[in-house]
Computed example of a mutant assay.
Amino acid sequence: METISSYLPLLAFMLAIGAFAGVIAGLLGVGGGIVLVPAFFYLFSSLGYGGDQVMQLCLGTSLATIVVTSIRSLHSHHKKGAVDWDILKIWSIFISVGAIIGGFTASELRSDVLQAIFGGLGILVGLYLGFGRQSWQIAEQMPTGILRSILASILGFLSVLMGIGGGSLGVPLMSLHNVAIHRAVATAAGFGLAISVPSLPGFMMVDIAQTVRPPFTIGAINLPAFFIIIAMTLITTPYGAKLAHALDPKPLKRVFAVFLIIVAMNMLRKAVGF
């Protein structure tokens, strides 16, 4: 018979993960999902939860937290006048289409395939975070027409398969198309909402066996993890933001980039069976 004490390791891990994700988000401006998904993976796996569907559990829970954090972040950026609503309104339509497809696709894919996707794309995000330059540009303005619809749909689709919001892929995309970095970060907060909300129905339909399902889980969304992560990120993100003003973010971004690449490579290694 399970007791309250049997849930204490899960609670302790979640508190630490949420605190770390909040600090990193405030300090480096990257979305919490890029931290939460691998953290959830090692946590749920080590505690014996998820089984062959552990990645669906990680992605679904991460995206659920992004709903709340994106609303809060978008509101904060809007008050500062930093959100480019013209980009957000048009791109969100196609991002949502990609996210819907991504949600139902992720619910059907094997966990090792999702691990490989996260590992491969995580390495690319880490390389850009560590070595990318704000001066890099491939165009003077954001794509329009059919190219916009394709890129936005791909952004939404891949973000869902990684369990992340709009920052990790959206900010580089906008920066490469001559959008100022502060506007890119602010607008990407809205991308996170367009990614997370439409994708959740797909994850809520995932049927995880009761023997490997964490307590209080709906589909592939673990409610205790959701509430604990939200509570901790709301507390620690402002501290990360304060540190960002007190410290030089460039070396810190490179350190985190190395950390992310190592985590992504390990996820990729597990996916291919090494």
Results as ranks from 00 to 15, higher is better:
G167S: 12
I146H: 09
V179R: 06
G145E: 07
T187Q: 03
A188K: 10
L176W: 14
A180C: 06
H182N: 03
L193P: 00
L193D: 01
Q141K: 15
A186V: 13
G166H: 01
S149P: 10
F191A: 11
M174G: 07
I195C: 03
L147A: 15
R148S: 09
P143T: 10
G192V: 07
M142T: 12
E140P: 04
A184Y: 04
M142P: 06
L176Y: 10
I146P: 02
L158E: 08
S149K: 10
S196C: 07
A189W: 00
H182C: 07
T144M: 10
V179I: 14
V160P: 00
H177L: 15
G165W: 11
A189L: 01
T187N: 00
I150E: 04
G192K: 09
L173E: 08
M174Q: 03
I164S: 01
G190S: 04
I195Q: 10
M162S: 04
A188M: 13
G166D: 09
N178M: 05
V179C: 05
V171H: 11
A189K: 06
E140R: 15
V160K: 04
I154Q: 02
G170R: 12
V171A: 05
R183F: 05
S149V: 12
M142E: 02
I146N: 14
S153Y: 00
A152G: 13
S153M: 03
V185L: 15
L158T: 04
A194Y: 04
A194M: 07
V185G: 04
M162Y: 08
G167W: 06
A189D: 13
N178W: 02
S175I: 10
G167R: 08
G190P: 00
S153V: 08
S149E: 07
I164R: 02
T144V: 05
I154D: 11
V179G: 03
M142N: 04
G145D: 08
L147F: 13
I146M: 08
I150W: 14
A152C: 03
G190K: 03
G192N: 01
A180I: 14
I154Y: 08
I181A: 13
G167H: 09
A194Q: 01
G166V: 14
A152I: 07
L151Y: 14
V185T: 12
G170D: 01
S149M: 15
P143K: 13
A152Q: 04
A152Y: 06
E140F: 10
G156I: 06
S149R: 15
L173I: 08
S168F: 05
I164M: 11
G192C: 00
M174I: 02
G156T: 01
G165T: 14
L173A: 14
G192W: 08
L193E: 04
S196R: 02
S159L: 12
F157G: 02
A188F: 04
V171S: 03
S149G: 06
G170M: 04
P172C: 11
G165S: 10
L158P: 00
S175L: 15
G145N: 01
A184C: 02
R148K: 15
I195V: 12
G192M: 03
M174A: 11
I150G: 03
I195A: 05
A188I: 03
S149A: 14
